[in-house]
């Protein structure tokens, strides 16, 4: 039940229904894309609450302006709308942290966003092998955007420990997710 992401209906038909005010079609699109879009927004913003609120606003706007829009690909439209809102938010906060050397963020994330949920489950189970505190530190830093000293204060440890734990978490991801990729490709071929 409720596994909306597995339902595949032509975007064009769905959007026509939404245009005519079909709430059910709107809900279906929402359920199909929401989690992916928030996760995508969060890789840019590193703030889950903000990511959720931005994605919700994109959907509210889609509904309000549905009659004016001519949408060919809902997926594409939503991705771009979310990405633009995120960029505006970053500009507004003026705290862009530009560390990606190859700048094409959408390209990379798009393949990821619509990757198999089996792969995502696998990634989850790998991350859950991280020791509890290391995982917590990684989450606080990457998902909530806290500074090292803020994390240190929150967990009552030294900033140096945070630094070391983050380093270990990265090493762990680099080593174990590489293994996963090999497995995935193996299955695909």
């Amino acid at each position: 039940m409720l596994k909306a992401e597995h339902i595949n209906i032509n975007d064009g038909i769905l959007f026509e229904k939404i245009k005519q005010g079909d709430q059910k079609a709107f809900e279906q699109v929402f359920r199909q894309h929401y989690v992916h879009l928030v996760a995508f927004a969060n890789t840019i913003l590193h703030d889950t609450d903000k990511a959720e609120s931005i994605v919700q606003n994109v959907f509210v706007k889609l509904w309000e302006k549905r009659k004016q829009y001519q949408v060919v690909s809902l997926k594409g439209y939503l991705m771009i709308a979310v990405k633009n809102s995120c960029n505006n938010e970053i500009k507004r906060l003026q705290q862009e942290r530009n560390f990606r050397q190859s700048a094409d963020k959408t390209q990379i994330s798009e393949t990821m966003v619509y990757s198999d949920s089996w792969v995502m489950d696998k990634i989850s189970s790998i991350i859950n092998q991280l020791p509890e505190q290391r995982k917590k530190i990684f989450k606080l830093s990457r998902l909530e955007g806290l500074k090292y000293r803020e994390i240190a204060a929150k967990l009552n440890i030294s900033p140096k420990t945070v630094e070391i734990q983050m380093g270990k978490a990265l090493k762990f991801l680099r080593e174990n997710l590489v293994e996963l990729k090999k497995q995935v490709y193996h299955i695909l071929w």
Partner: peptide, 22 residues
């Protein structure tokens, strides 16, 4: 380095999706 960044991103992605109350 780009591979590492994309793995960090995957991890963030998976962790975020786990905790969203749809």
């Amino acid at each position: 380095w780009n591979k590492l960044l994309s793995e960090v991103e995957q991890a963030e992605y998976a962790l975020t999706s786990e905790s969203i109350d749809i």
